[in-house]
Measured scan of single mutants.
Amino acid sequence: SFNTVDEWLEAIKMGQYKESFANAGFTSFDVVSQMMMEDILRVGVTLAGHQKKILNSIQVMRAQMN
């Protein structure tokens, strides 16, 4: 498990989005775990492969939080 959203993004090789997530207010796992595709688009993730990777990881995160 990760301590910060930045660490999580690095771990899934999506570190290039750290600033975008932070600027959009997605700075805690409570918020990130609620993200939908529209949120991912809003933070500027436009590549389908990256969207899928982030969404898949969020689903895993949700499962671990319950």
Rank of each mutant, 00 (worst) to 15 (best):
W8Q: 00
M36K: 15
E7V: 05
N56F: 11
M65V: 07
L47F: 10
Q64H: 15
K52Y: 12
Q16Y: 06
L55I: 08
L9W: 03
L47R: 11
F26K: 05
F21R: 00
N56R: 14
I12W: 03
Q34W: 06
H50R: 02
F26H: 03
K52M: 14
K53T: 15
S20V: 08
G44I: 02
D30H: 14
M61Q: 04
W8N: 00
S33L: 15
I40Q: 00
Q59Y: 12
E7W: 05
M36S: 15
N3P: 08
G44N: 04
F21K: 00
F29K: 03
N23C: 07
D30K: 15
E19G: 09
M37E: 09
D30S: 12
G15I: 05
A63R: 10
A48W: 09
E19L: 13
R62T: 06
K52W: 12
G15N: 06
A48M: 10
L55R: 04
D39I: 03
S28E: 06
N23W: 08
V5H: 01
N56C: 14
T46L: 12
D6Y: 08
S33E: 06
D39Q: 05
R42L: 09
S28P: 01
G44R: 03
V5A: 02
W8F: 04
I40A: 02
S57F: 10
V43D: 01
N3I: 10
L9K: 00
M36E: 15
Q34I: 09
L55Y: 15
G15E: 09
R42F: 09
H50P: 03
F2G: 06
D30C: 14
I54K: 01
T27K: 09
E7L: 07
N66M: 06
V32E: 01
S57H: 11
S57C: 13
M35Q: 01
E10V: 09
D6L: 05
F2C: 09
I40N: 00
Q51N: 04
F2N: 06
D6F: 10
A48N: 10
H50I: 03
E19Y: 09
I58H: 00
M14V: 04
L55V: 05
V5Q: 00
I40K: 00
G49A: 15
I58R: 01
F2T: 06
S33T: 11
S33H: 07
I58E: 00
N56L: 13
E10P: 01
K53Q: 13
A22L: 10
D30F: 13
Q59V: 09
V60Q: 14
Y17T: 01
F29D: 00
E38C: 09
F29H: 03
I54D: 00
T27P: 02
S20C: 09
T46M: 10
F21D: 00
L9A: 01
T4R: 07
V32P: 00
H50Q: 04
